[in-house]
Deep mutational scan, measured.
Amino acid sequence: SKDAAQYVYDEAQKGVTQVTVNGVTFKFDNWQKLLKYAQKLLN
């Protein structure tokens, strides 16, 4: 959902490398990768 994507995006902006959405945890090597993933979700 857009809300989940926005949440992931906001978390990535904080510099975190993992985020949990609806009980599913996504882990990334660095926050830039998390940010890229979030941007994909938002598009």
Score class of each variant (00 low, 15 high):
Val19Trp: 14
Thr20Phe: 06
Asp10Gln: 06
Tyr37Ala: 02
Ala38Val: 13
Val8Asp: 15
Tyr37Ser: 01
Glu11Gln: 13
Thr17Val: 10
Lys14Val: 11
Lys2Phe: 09
Gln39His: 02
Ala38Cys: 10
Lys36Asn: 07
Glu11Thr: 11
Ser1Glu: 12
Gln32Glu: 07
Lys27Gln: 08
Gln13Val: 11
Ser1Trp: 14
Lys33Ser: 09
Tyr9Cys: 15
Thr17Met: 07
Leu41Thr: 00
Asp3Gln: 08
Gln39Pro: 00
Leu42Gly: 00
Tyr9His: 09
Ser1Ala: 11
Thr25Val: 12
Gly23Pro: 01
Trp31Ser: 00
Asn43Val: 03
Glu11Phe: 13
Gln18Asp: 03
Leu41Arg: 01
Ser1Arg: 03
Leu42Tyr: 01
Ala38Ser: 01
Ala38Met: 12
Gln6Lys: 05
Thr25Arg: 05
Thr17Arg: 05
Ser1Tyr: 08
Asn30Gln: 09
Gly23Val: 15
Thr17Ser: 02
Ala12Val: 09
Ser1Asn: 11
Lys2Gly: 06
Leu42Phe: 07
Thr17Ala: 09
Ala5Gln: 04
Ala12Leu: 09
Asp3Lys: 02
Val24Met: 13
Tyr37Ile: 10
Asp3Tyr: 02
Gln32Met: 03
Gly23Cys: 08
Leu41Glu: 00
Asp3Leu: 06
Ala5Cys: 15
Phe26Leu: 10
Lys33Trp: 10
Trp31Thr: 00
Phe28Val: 09
Asp10Met: 11
Asn43Glu: 05
Ser1Gly: 12
Ala12Thr: 08
Ala12Gln: 04
Trp31Leu: 07
Gln6Ile: 03
Lys14Met: 12
Tyr7Asn: 14
Leu34Asn: 00
Leu41Gly: 00
Val24Asn: 14
Ala38Thr: 03
Glu11Arg: 01
Tyr9Thr: 13
Val8Pro: 14
Val21Trp: 02
Lys2Tyr: 03
Lys40Ser: 06
Tyr7Ser: 15
Tyr9Val: 13
Leu42Gln: 01
Asn22Val: 15
Lys40Asp: 03
Lys36Gly: 08
Gln13Ala: 10
Lys14Phe: 11
Val16Gly: 04
Gln13Asp: 09
Gly23Tyr: 13
Asn22Trp: 15
Asn30Tyr: 07
Lys2Glu: 08
Tyr37Asn: 02
Ala12Gly: 06
Ala5Thr: 03
Trp31Arg: 00
Val19Thr: 04
Thr17Ile: 12
Leu35Ser: 00
Val16Gln: 05
Asn22Ile: 15
Phe26Val: 03
Gln18Phe: 13
Leu34Ser: 00
Tyr7Ala: 14
Gly15Gln: 10
Gln39Leu: 08
Tyr9Leu: 10
Thr25Gly: 07
Asn43Gly: 03
Asp10Trp: 14
Tyr37Lys: 03
Asn43Tyr: 04
Gln39Arg: 04
Lys2Pro: 04
Leu42Ile: 02
Tyr37Trp: 05
Val8Gln: 12
Leu34Glu: 00
Gln6His: 08
Gly23Thr: 13
Asn22Leu: 13
Val21Asp: 13
Tyr37Asp: 04
Thr25His: 11
Val19Leu: 13
